[in-house]
């Protein structure tokens, strides 16, 4: 391998993960390998840095900045909005969702104090400025399939009402929009269109939720490899029929 190329690969990845790349390979291949390696290495970096710079006191103080005045020990929706503003991101973005996931937040729009302290500690962040550094990494989670899958499944429990088994269709659609950018997930735009037009369901159950990620990652955009005799939930059968009928001329 010409050394030039290796050097360029290293520089592109080193921004996020400072670990030296020993892998060799041609352009694309090494890139993708680098990106899978990134998960582990960045996690490692966070863990190592955590005890050095992390201060529990600073973190608690940081929490109190956003703490709900009416309900101590909790950051409510207003606090979360402010927190997001300070981070410079919109609340309805994947970064915020990843933060919620990392903190192990149970309910959308709320951070409890113990979730915050524990979660931020494991991230090694005790200030907005430190957390901002991770945002790029969080944003790239859709490149890390295993991690993304965990996040995706977390989102289901996170977004649903705690007393419900399933996710209301509006919440589900919102979550999908956050989680699955249409430039990465081929089916999302049409699928949401299908849900709006046909209104086949009122809620999305866990099985449908889980299956949609698999559907999005395994079935080709033109649906030629979709097997209707397979175990896909009926919702997807209906979607496929709808799409084939509606976009017949395009296929």
């Amino acid at each position: 391998m010409p050394p030039k190329k290796r050097a360029s690969t290293t520089t592109t990845t080193s921004k996020v993960s400072p670990r030296k790349k020993t892998k060799t390979g041609t352009g694309r291949a090494s890139r993708s390998r680098a990106s899978t390696g990134k998960t582990a290495s960045s996690e490692l970096a966070l863990d190592q840095d955590a005890p050095k710079h992390f201060s529990a006191i600073r973190c608690a103080k940081w929490f109190s900045e956003y703490e709900d005045t009416d309900e101590p020990g909790v950051i409510g929706p207003d606090g979360v909005m402010r927190f997001c503003q300070d981070l410079g991101v919109d609340a309805a973005t994947i970064e915020v969702l990843v933060i919620a996931w990392k903190l192990g937040a149970q309910t959308m729009g709320y951070f409890k104090k113990d979730e915050w302290l524990h979660g931020m500690k494991s991230l090694g962040a005790d200030s907005t400025a430190k957390l901002i550094k991770y945002l790029d990494h969080f944003r790239g989670i859709s490149d890390r399939p295993e991690e993304f899958k965990d996040l995706y499944m977390f989102a289901f429990g996170f977004a649903k009402e705690s007393d419900q088994k399933s996710l209301s269709i509006d919440h589900a659609k919102g979550m999908w929009q956050i989680l699955m950018p249409s430039d990465r997930f081929a089916h999302i735009t049409r699928f949401l269109e299908f849900l709006d037009e046909e209104r086949p369901v009122k809620v999305i159950n866990k099985d449908q939720w889980k299956s949609f990620l698999e559907f999005s990652t395994t079935v080709a955009e033109n649906l030629h490899d979709y097997d209707e005799n397979s175990a896909w939930p009926v919702l997807f059968d209906e979607y496929v029929i709808w799409k084939k009928k509606r976009y017949q001329e395009n296929d």
Binding site: K165, N205, K206, D207, Q208, N229, A231, P233, V234, D237
Partner: peptide
């Protein structure tokens, strides 16, 4: 078959 599949889904649920 769709009815069977729906029943399977309900049982998963």
């Amino acid at each position: 078959i769709p009815v069977i599949k729906r029943c399977i889904e309900q049982l998963i649920e």
